[in-house]
Computed example of a mutant assay.
Amino acid sequence: MQVDLNSDMGEGFGPYRLCDDEAMMDVVTSANIACGFHAGDPDTMVRMVRLARARGVDIGAHPGLPDRQGFGRRELPFGPDELRQQMLYQLGALTAIAKAEGAMVSHLSFHAAMGNMVNRDPALAAAMMEAIRAVDPGLIVFATAGSVIERAAIETGLKTLTLFLADRAYDARGALVPRGQPGALVKDEASVRARVRKFLLDGTVTAIDGTVVPMRARSILVHSDTPGSLDLARTVRSEIEAAGGAVTPVSKLPR
């Protein structure tokens, strides 16, 4: 069993850092790097690319809305074409930085509100996937199983990787419980460990109301801004290895 372990990273800017990215890079196998809109800046992006390259961690673009104050979690009234251009701008920036460092971008994972907006609109999702494919048809798109984004990527001919969010609660439909609602964030070690073990052994997750729902995924995500994220990522990795699995970068997962 091979499982990717990924995290959204480089989500500070200037002297401000959200978590210990250096230590986190020793735990994960794929890094989704903020591209300068909701977080990140050129120096931070270069630092993250260099860290990932040195540790054999896959590099992914993590585009979001241009809203630092809201950390890209507030939906803003951008039109479909504006969102397409914002995504391309960020993907292009990270692609250029990675290339200059002798590395490559392997995947793309939408951040927060941008991802929510794309995932509600099949036409927008299709336009986004066509744009991604035009830049690099080999890019892998991270998505939730059965989502609009996953379907659009497959229909466009892009590879996908489905995610299980270890630190977020799910409802009975298999959708994420919105942030701000009680229990939406799972941050204690025992709960994360139990959730990951159940996912690895049974391919399911227990929803917030106790319903057991299927969870089709090949990668586990830990958000770097979750309190105690580094310890949680170490917990996830230890559970994968305890179950006889091997943490594997997305680009090396068997297809």
Rank of each mutant, 00 (worst) to 15 (best):
D121P: 05
M104V: 00
V186R: 06
G146C: 07
L163F: 09
T95E: 09
R197N: 01
D136Y: 01
P182W: 10
V118F: 01
L253G: 07
T206G: 03
P254R: 13
D21M: 10
V192Q: 06
Q90W: 04
R133T: 10
V57C: 08
D41R: 04
K187I: 10
H107Y: 14
V213Y: 05
L232A: 08
R68W: 06
F199V: 02
L232V: 06
M117I: 08
L83G: 12
P227F: 00
L18Q: 12
R179G: 01
E82N: 11
R255H: 14
R55E: 14
D43R: 03
G56R: 03
G138R: 06
A34N: 03
L165A: 04
R255K: 15
L161E: 00
T204R: 13
A233W: 03
V105C: 08
A153T: 02
N119F: 06
M25D: 02
L158A: 07
G245L: 00
C19P: 04
M215Q: 15
P254T: 10
A134N: 11
L161A: 15
E241M: 08
S109E: 11
T156S: 15
G14V: 00
Y16C: 01
A184K: 00
L124M: 06
M117Q: 15
T211F: 03
A152Q: 09
M114N: 12
L230N: 13
G56D: 14
D209C: 13
L88P: 11
M24R: 06
